[in-house]
Design a protein around this nucleic acid. Structure first.
Length: 808
DNA sequence: ATGAAAGAAGTTGCTTTGTGTACG
DNA sequence: GCGTACACTTTGCAACTTCTTTCA
């Protein structure tokens, strides 16, 4: 769990979660049961994965600098551990920090086994901030994720890679788990915010913002035409957005894109972080009409709900990517939207007051990307991004602050709302950052936006039900976005469904169904990808080049062509290389006859292989390594083992029976997977075969795993009875051993008593009593040691049901 | 600026029916 | 002499992944 904590530390723009410690017992009280299951499941898996020591790589740079910093490193490392253990309990805090961004602390390492920390040292990494001696700027350039913990004796690899790192299977599993945890945490956070938007007092505070006239737009007459009703609401929303923009002041940074590679050991909450932690903060934000952009959107939601509209709170979750590959671990490039004057990892300078008008301000920097004057920008879709105080003076006086601070965020919102267009039974996205109504296409930030990414867009309704509406807002859902979501991992779709089920209302309204169809249509309308890379892993299209060796196109229908290769971009379209695009549904998995047999299937007679692949090795020395024929599932049928005849169970050449799946048990037979079954069958003298259920690798060769036996079904009861008999016997034998041991001790005790009695009888007047006492004492000691200290003996300890020493 | 190709370097998955010794 | 329990050992290769560089 230590790792988890490291991964969920707040990065920036996040609330101060650290101040609210909790006891572990509270975790179970506050975490919904379904999540507890999921978490424990995930942790279990990880325990499995650490059984085998992972093979690790190491870069030369890291090794070279190791010795110098080793000591210092160790100290730092220990501190980390302490911190992590301390704060580990807060992971599932009831109140999540607002806009909680998460980072993965490289120091928390790949193994969270406490013992593992004792003999594993972190390598000092010249790229790691604060350790390699690089100054701040360089650090940001070169800093990369070091998830690898190594034993210091490890030998360096021959030719290490300069930058970047590949991750082991365990690392990737950890990344995925943290990604999931992050999703759960943010969803819960979102649900809570959504709840606050329903708060009557918040709505009451905001109510005066909209005059009766402003509200009039939202009161539509059902007798009006659809168009008029929608038009009225849109007009009202435009109006409300203007009012909101002139009144709400952005004073804090909202949620932003998460990265893996930041060192949280010296993390300081930036001064412009969103500090709304509980409902009272939320109310205060409503009263002061200031806060982060996110808080603004939430309050806006409350305002509209208060005005009687059906409003959903929408959030584009800023999750840690599933793969922490090096391209994703670099700090955000100072690109289009990162017009921040300071590096993101230096929070102290982050908070420095800035002069908006100065040429070094983000305004000036922005000028290259958005060459608009402040006034022109007002009408620009991204106007809200600039939050210009002078052109839109707030109604209330700003709090007395020495200087105004610029908050430069992505021009695309993270939080917004969806308003129900009742006439059309559709949800219209409404946002005051982009100042748009019903334009879903303007919400998706480009891939290069270092502050904002769109992967999961969740929409919470007033009653707390959640909907995944990502497809409404993303252009390339199937081609790009889906690959960054859990659905692209094994069992991911199911997991997400399960996670979101917790927030569902349990049934689908008509509106939900209409929306389902709408989202499906959007997905179906997605055009064919234009780049070859996007075809890989696409749920609908496939290129022949991306087929795996056990995949084959059956009855393929070419459904398009795509330009591939360098020729494609050559002038005049000459020499264009075109590749055929096929449907993913035409792809079938093929296996060898042996492979199918392991799944309990058999290739039908006369079937021709669909594909063949080169055999790895000749099985016998004289054989040429030929090709292995591969078949599709359609070419196979369920394997039927030779039946049990007259109680005789068939055997294969190895003298046992393959039962890889249940269907391979021969007719008239039954599989008893108990270890004692063979002995029982032998005792009864009936025919049986050992059941081989799989293989395990020991040494160089695989060995069969035998699990129980197959017997004729008529003997099942008898064999089970005998197995039960064995168990009873065993139990009785054990009891007998215990009884004997107890009796032995009683005997000894009695003998001891008798001796004492006799010795006492020898006592003659005048003899010193001490001697006798000594003798008895010695005897006592003898009884407490060695043979009396038997585990199974029972007897001597009152709590043992063997009883004995203490008479009942 | 972007993406494809090619190459490098590393990881993963497939493979798939023992043997020798001590001891009761 | 026989049966049983247990320790021993952990291949090698191709596919696949990820990253970098080069180029159009």
């Amino acid at each position: 769990m230590a790792k988890t904590r490291g991964g969920l530390a707040a990065r920036s723009g996040a609330g101060a979660a650290g101040s609210r410690g909790q006891r572990p017992s509270r975790i179970s009280a506050t975490v919904p049961e379904v999540y507890q299951d999921m978490i424990s499941e995930a942790l279990e898996n990880d325990h499995d994965s650490i059984d085998r020591p992972p093979k690790r790589r190491r870069t030369r740079q890291a090794l070279e600098s190791h010795t110098e910093d080793a000591k210092k490193e160790q100290e730092t490392h220990n501190e980390h551990i302490d911190e992590e253990q301390e704060s580990e309990e807060e992971v599932f805090e009831d109140v999540l920090p607002p806009a909680a961004q998460t980072v993965y602390n490289s120091d928390s390492g790949s193994d969270w086994d406490d013992d593992a920390f004792e003999d594993i040292g972190l390598y000092s990494d010249p790229f790691q901030p604060g350790l390699g001696g690089a100054d701040g700027d360089e650090r940001d350039e070169d800093q990369h994720l070091d998830l690898t913990l190594n034993k210091s004796k490890e030998v360096p690899q021959k030719t290490p890679r300069k930058k970047g790192r590949t991750f082991t299977k365990e690392d990737r599993a950890t990344h995925l788990m943290i990604h999931k945890m992050h999703l759960l945490c943010l969803t819960r956070y979102l649900e809570r915010r959504n709840e606050w938007c329903n708060d009557a007092e918040v709505q009451r505070i905001l109510r005066p913002l909209l005059s009766a006239k402003d509200r009039q737009w939202f009161k539509t007459n059902p007798e009006w035409t659809q168009f008029r009703r929608t038009g009225s609401i849109k007009k009202g929303l435009d109006n409300a957005a203007n009012i909101w923009l002139t009144n709400f002041k952005v004073t804090a940074r909202g949620m932003r894109r998460a990265y893996w590679d930041e060192d949280v050991s010296d993390f300081v909450l930036p001064p412009d972080a969103d500090r709304v932690l509980d409902k009272s903060d939320f109310k205060r934000a409503a009263m002061n009409m200031e806060g982060s952009r996110d808080t603004g959107a939430q309050l806006y939601c409350a305002l509209l709900r208060g005005a009687g509209l059906d409003v959903r709170l929408v959030c584009s979750l800023q999750l840690l990517p599933i793969n922490a590959s090096s391209s994703k671990t670099r700090p955000p490039p100072q690109g289009v939207s990162t017009a921040r004057p300071v590096t993101p990892t230096t929070p102290t300078s982050d908070g420095e007051a800035m002069n908006i008008g100065s040429p070094t301000s983000p305004f000036a920097t922005r000028a290259t990307g958005a060459p608009f004057s402040a006034r022109r920008r007002l009408g620009h879709p991204n106007a809200a991004d600039y939050h210009i105080p002078d052109t839109a003076p707030p109604r209330r006086l700003p709090p007395p602050k020495p200087k105004q601070r610029r908050i430069v965020e992505s021009p695309y919102p993270v939080f917004w709302v969806e308003v129900l267009d009742e006439a059309h039974q559709k949800w219209m996205p409404v946002d005051f950052v982009t100042a748009t109504v019903n334009k879903p296409s303007v919400f998706e930030p480009p891939a290069v936006d270092a502050e904002n990414t769109m992967t999961y867009v969740f929409s919470f309704e007033e009653d707390g039900a959640v909907r995944d509406v990502t497809r409404r807002y993303t252009k390339w859902y199937s081609a790009k976005v889906r690959k960054t979501r859990v659905e692209s991992t094994e069992g991911g779709s199911k997991w997400l469904r399960r996670a979101l089920k917790f927030y569902s209302r349990g049934w689908k309204t008509d509106l939900d169904q209409i929306e389902d169809i709408e989202l499906q249509t959007i997905e179906g309308r997605e055009p064919m990808p234009t780049s070859i890379a996007d075809f890989k892993g696409h749920p609908r299209y496939v290129l022949e080049r991306d087929l795996r060796r056990n995949e084959v196109l059956i009855d393929p229908h070419e459904i398009g062509k795509v330009a591939a290769g360098r020729d494609a971009s050559s002038a005049g379209g000459k020499g264009k290389k075109l590749e055929s695009v096929f449907r993913r549904t035409d792809v079938k998995t093929v296996r060898s006859a042996d492979g199918w047999y392991r799944l309990g299937r058999e290739v039908k007679v006369g079937e021709q292989p669909m594909k063949s692949r080169a055999a790895r090795k000749a099985t016998n020395n004289d054989d040429e390594p030929g090709d292995v024929a591969l078949y599709t599932e359609d070419q196979t049928e369920l394997y039927e083992a030779p039946p049990v005849v007259n109680g005789r169970v068939p055997k294969n050449v190895y003298g046992n029976l393959d039962v890889y799946v249940q269907s391979m048990v021969p007719k008239g037979g039954v599989h008893l997977p108990y270890p004692d079954a063979a002995r029982a069958a032998r005792l009864l003298g009936i025919s049986y075969s050992d059941a081989v259920t799989g293989f395990e690798f020991r040494g160089r060769q695989g060995t069969a795993v035998v699990k129980g036996v197959v017997i004729a079904s008529e003997y099942q009861e008898a064999v089970e009875a005998v197995i039960q008999g064995f168990k009873d016997d065993e139990w009785h034998a054990k009891e007998e051993r215990r009884t004997l041991a107890a009796l032995r001790m009683w005997k000894r005790f009695m003998v001891g008593l008798r001796i004492k009695e006799r010795v006492d009888a020898y006592e003659i007047e005048g003899e010193e009593k001490e001697k006798v006492d000594e003798y008895i004492q010695d005897d006592d000691e003898g009884m407490q040691s060695e043979e009396y200290d038997m585990d199974e003996a029972g007897g001597f300890f009152p709590e043992d049901d063997g009883g004995g020493f203490v008479p009942e």
